[in-house]
Design a protein around this nucleic acid. Structure first.
Lengths: 233, 233
DNA sequence: TCATAGACTTTCATCTGATGAAGTTCGGAC
DNA sequence: GTCCGAACTTCATCAGATGAAAGTCTATGA
C-alpha cells in the first residue's frame, strides 16, 4: 500500500492518508466497500483504534460512510468535502488530471474578479498597504521564475484578504494549495511574468481608488490570461 | 453540555457535535486547552474510544490539535475548515451573528456573477434545460414565500451546475447550507419575490444564449438586491 | 416451487485496561 | 540563578471483550 510518509508516530494519520489518497485518485470506487477493519489492521500495520480513528476522519470529510455490520464504503463524489485541504492535496497532486486543471482555471475566472470587486468595496488602509507591498514584491521578483510564483500567490491572497471575508479568504487558500501543487498553472516564462505585471498593477490601483468595476475588470484580465496559459500547456 | 441530539447511537458523532458547536460559537477559545480525555469521558457520558474518534474528526476539520502529553487545544480560526458542512452549520445556526450575514451576502456578490459567467461559457443543453425548469418553478411559487425559497436555491444551484465545475458547485452547496439556516437572507416578501423574477429570467436567458457578459450582469443584479435586503433587515 | 421465520454470521460500535512516549513541572545540586 | 533529571501528566496505541444491527442461510410449511 505505497510508501509510508508517517513512520512511527501518527498512525491514524497514516490511515487517513493511505485511504484518502486512494479514494480521491479513484483506486477505491464510490459505492464499493473497503476492506474490513481487521484486514486494514493487517495491511496498514496499525491497531484497530488507529484504523477506526482514521476512518472516522475520512467519514468527517464525506469520503467514507460506515454502517454497523454492513461494512464501510466509499461515498459518492457529491458527498466529498471538495474544499478540504487534504482532499485538495490528494486531488491536485504532482500528476493532476488535465480536466482538473481546467476546473481550477475556471474557478479562478469565476471567483477572482468578483473577489477583487468586493475587495475594492471593503478594503481598509492596512489592506491596501498589504496589497501594495505584495505588488512591490511581484515587481521585484519578475525576473526570477521561482520566487515570482510565491509573490504572485501572495498578491492574490492580499486582494482576497482586503475583502474582509473569511469565507472568501478560505476559498482562496484552498485554491492556492491546488495552485502550488500544479505549479505549471503558474509557471510561466519571465516574459509572461512581465506581461502580467501591468494587469496586476491595475488591480492594485483600482482597489486603492475603490473603483470596483475597474478592479474586477483588471483581475478578470489576469485570470483569463492565466487560464489561457494553463489550458494551452 | 447542552442537550443531546444523538441519543443512544453515534456516540462519537455526539462528541463531534458537542465540541464542534462550542468551538465555533466561541465558548471554547482558540489556544485554550480543552478538558482532558478522562474529563470528556465523564462530561459527555461516552467511552474513551468515542471521545478520541470525535476529537480526531474535529482535528481533521482543523478545529482541534492534539499534542501528546500536552493536551488538546483549540486551533486558531485561520486553521478551521470554514467551508466544511458541519462547521458552516454550527456557525450559521438559528442565531447567526449580523457580521456573518454580511460575510455571506458579500460572498454571493463576489461569487455568483462570475459563476453565471462561466455557466454561460460551459453550459450544455441539459444544463440549460435544468435552469429553465428551475426558472419555471420559480415563477410557479412566486406567490408562496416558503416554497419560493427552495425554488430560488434550486435555480441558483442549476446555474452553478451549468458551469460544469465541481469545486464551484461544492462552494454553492455550502453557501446554500448557510442560506437555508439564516433564511432571513432569503425570506423576502411576495412583492420582493416578484421583483426579482425578471432578473432571474435575464440570467437564464443570457446563459441560454451563451452571453456571458449579460449573464454576469443579471446575476450581479440578483445578488446585489439580495445583499441589500439582507443588510437592511 | 416458493415464501418466510428464525438461527447464524459478519462487521462495525463501544467500553475497558494496559503499556508506551513525549512533554511539563518541580526539586535539588552546583 | 541556572541547569539537570526524576516524577508526573496526558495523549497514542494496542488488545480483548461485549453488543448491536444487518445480511445470509436454512428448514419448514403451503
Amino acid at each position: 500500500m505505497a510508501t509510508d510518509p508517517y513512520p512511527d508516530t501518527a498512525r491514524h494519520a497514516h490511515v487517513v492518508h493511505a485511504l484518502g489518497a486512494r479514494i480521491v485518485d479513484g483506486s477505491l470506487v464510490p459505492g464499493t466497500p473497503i476492506p474490513i477493519e481487521e484486514q486494514l489492521v493487517n495491511e496498514l500495520g496499525v491497531g484497530r483504534s488507529a484504523v477506526r480513528e482514521g476512518v472516522k476522519v475520512l467519514a468527517g470529510k464525506g469520503l467514507l460512510e460506515t454502517r454497523r455490520s454492513a461494512g464501510t464504503r466509499v461515498r459518492p463524489r457529491e458527498s466529498w468535502s471538495l474544499l478540504d485541504a487534504d482532499v485538495l492535496s490528494w486531488r491536485f497532486g504532482p500528476d493532476a488530471q488535465p480536466g482538473d486543471i481546467r476546473v481550477l482555471a475556471d474557478l479562478r475566472v469565476a471567483l477572482e474578479p468578483g473577489a477583487a470587486r468586493v475587495a475594492a468595496e471593503r478594503a481598509d488602509a492596512a489592506a491596501i498597504q498589504r496589497i501594495d507591498e505584495a505588488l512591490a514584491a511581484l515587481h521585484a521578483t519578475a525576473d526570477d521564475p521561482d520566487p515570482f510564483i510565491g509573490a504572485d500567490l501572495a498578491f492574490h491572497r492580499a486582494v482576497f484578504g482586503a475583502a474582509d471575508n473569511d469565507l472568501l479568504l478560505y476559498i482562496y487558500d484552498m485554491i492556492s494549495i491546488a495552485l502550488r501543487s500544479v505549479r505549471q498553472v503558474h509557471t510561466r516564462s519571465v516574459a509572461h511574468n512581465k506581461e502580467t505585471l501591468p494587469n496586476h498593477e491595475r488591480v492594485a490601483v483600482a482597489i486603492r481608488r475603490r473603483h470596483h468595476r475597474k478592479a474586477e475588470e483588471a483581475m478578470r484580465e489576469v485570470v483569463e490570461v492565466a487560464r489561457a496559459d494553463a489550458l494551452h500547456c
